[in-house]
Simulated scan of single mutants.
Amino acid sequence: MSFAALRASARRAGAAAPAARASRTALRNPAFRKFSTEVPPTPKKSSNAALLGALGAAAIGGVGFWVYTSSSDSAREAGTAVKSGVQAAKVAANYVPTQEDYQKVYNRVAEILDSAGDKGYDDGSYGPVLVRLAWHASGTYDKDSNTGGSNYATMRFEPEAKHGANNGLNVARDLLEPLKQEFPWISYGDLWTLAGVASIQEMGGPKVPWRPGRIDGFSAQCTPDGRLPDAAQGADHIRNIFYRMGFNDQEIVALSGAHALGRCHTDRSGFEGPWTFSPTSVTNEYYKLLLNEKWLWKKWDGPKQLEDKKTHSLMMLPTDYALVQDKAFKKWTKAYADDEQLWFKDFSSVVARLFELGVPSQQWVSSEPWILKSSDEK
Rank of each mutant, 00 (worst) to 15 (best):
T98M: 02
A153L: 10
S46L: 13
I60T: 05
G79M: 13
R33S: 03
L228I: 13
A54D: 09
P212H: 05
A337W: 02
G53F: 05
D308Q: 03
A22F: 00
A26F: 08
D249N: 09
A15E: 14
A88H: 08
P229I: 15
S74H: 08
N248H: 10
V131I: 15
Y336G: 04
A92M: 13
G124R: 05
K44R: 12
S269I: 09
Q250D: 04
P184Q: 11
T283C: 08
W300I: 01
E158Q: 14
P224N: 10
T25W: 05
S74E: 14
A110R: 07
F218D: 14
S374E: 09
G64F: 01
H259I: 01
M203L: 15
A5F: 09
Q221T: 12
Q103V: 02
G246C: 01
Q87Y: 10
K299V: 15
G61P: 00
V91R: 13
D144V: 10
A92D: 06
P209H: 07
T276A: 10
G168F: 12
A337F: 05
E293N: 14
G62C: 00
G257A: 06
P274M: 13
N151Q: 12
V109G: 01
S199I: 08
E177Y: 13
K162I: 07
N151H: 11
Y68P: 00
E202K: 00
K83R: 15
W135F: 09
